[in-house]
Computed example of a mutant assay.
Amino acid sequence: MSSKTPIGMIGIGLMGHGIATNLVKHGHPLTVLEHPGNQPLDALKAAGAKSVASIAELTAAAEVIVLCVTGSPQVEAVLLGDGGVLASLKPGTVVIDCSTAIPSSTLRVAEAVQRAGGRFLDAPMTRTPKEAAEGRLNLLVGGDAALFAQCRPILACFAENITHTGAVGTGHGMKLLHNYVSLGTVALIAEAAACAQRSGVQPEVFVDVLAKGGGGGVALERLKPFITRKDANSLRFAMSNAQKDLGYYAEMAGDIGAAQAIADAVLATYAGAVEQGGPQRYVPELVELLAKK
């Protein structure tokens, strides 16, 4: 893979826009699929990216196709559906799925890509749109080691830390493990912050004591702006996406018979927040929603 490898990308949302921006910045000819869910494409086009209206046009232009869509149903639709990527995939094309997905679905998708003559990596990400724009994502990559090494220069265009997790599907599995721990910790702190609010503990005192003790860490830092001044922008992650990711984790745990009692409670917390406050509220607002219960 060279710096001039032509890349096609599907899913130019909050995270995908940052990925696309950095691919263009590093000199890759980039073709993106037009879609109502995309972020504005003006800056990408001004930087040299091309947009197309059909998947067939995108596959014709690309040697590598990057997906950054919502989840497994969207990945399956984009790849396997009528007029999907596999209908016009060129032999040897590499599909890199940066979405969050269920590992059992990923394995089915990867097999279908391989039958169609392509190659597949699952490469979900952690961190936020800020790091995506900065080219500083963390990537968890599942797939053949030789293919991973071949694609690493492309991944390095938009990622700071890149971990090869093992075979196909392990990247998506590790992403779900990560998000369960991350979102679970956020939910625990949010519930405690709501209790503190009701019991009269000052927000600054609550945050300071946790930060100096066992409650310190990334989750607290991401919640701190909302706890202290009602600013939710430090974690621009929709409550509905949290519910989806935790639902995926619960499905994965169920598939392999793993313990999941705590996971079920965390999932119920986010599901209740979506019902109470709507799907687009940012995760830090969980504090306020729980305080109102």
Rank of each mutant, 00 (worst) to 15 (best):
M1I: 13
S2T: 12
M9D: 02
L14N: 14
G16K: 09
H17R: 14
H17N: 12
G18H: 02
A20P: 01
K25G: 09
G27C: 11
H28N: 04
P29Y: 05
T31N: 02
A43Y: 11
L44F: 07
K45Q: 15
G48Q: 03
A49I: 03
S51P: 14
A53M: 04
S54L: 15
S54G: 13
S54W: 11
I55S: 11
A56L: 08
E57P: 13
E57T: 08
I65M: 01
I65S: 00
L67A: 01
T70D: 11
P73W: 02
P73E: 04
L79K: 05
G81P: 06
G83A: 04
K90C: 08
P91F: 04
T93D: 04
V94W: 02
V95S: 03
T100N: 08
I102R: 08
S105Q: 11
T106M: 01
T106V: 07
L107V: 13
A116M: 03
L121G: 01
D122G: 03
T126F: 05
T126C: 05
T126N: 03
L137S: 00
L139N: 02
V141M: 01
G142T: 09
A145I: 07
A145F: 10
F148S: 12
Q150I: 02
A159Y: 07
E160I: 13
T163D: 09
V168R: 00
G173D: 06
K175G: 05
L176E: 04
L183P: 06
L183G: 06
V186G: 05
V186E: 06
V186A: 06
L188P: 10
I189P: 13
E191L: 03
E191A: 08
A193I: 08
A194G: 15
A196F: 07
Q197G: 14
R198S: 12
R198F: 10
R198T: 13
S199I: 09
G200M: 05
V201I: 15
Q202D: 15
P203W: 00
E204K: 12
V209Q: 05
V209T: 06
L210E: 03
G216H: 08
L220K: 07
I227R: 06
K230S: 15
D231S: 02
N233K: 13
L235V: 03
R236W: 12
N241V: 05
Q243L: 12
D245Y: 00
D245S: 04
L246G: 06
Y248V: 04
Y248A: 08
A250T: 12
A250I: 14
A250E: 13
M252A: 15
A253M: 02
I256T: 14
G257I: 07
A258M: 10
A259I: 12
A259D: 15
I262R: 04
A263V: 07
A265E: 15
L267D: 06
A268Y: 01
T269N: 00
G272F: 07
V274P: 12
G277S: 01
P279V: 10
V283H: 03
V283C: 04
L289V: 12
L290A: 12
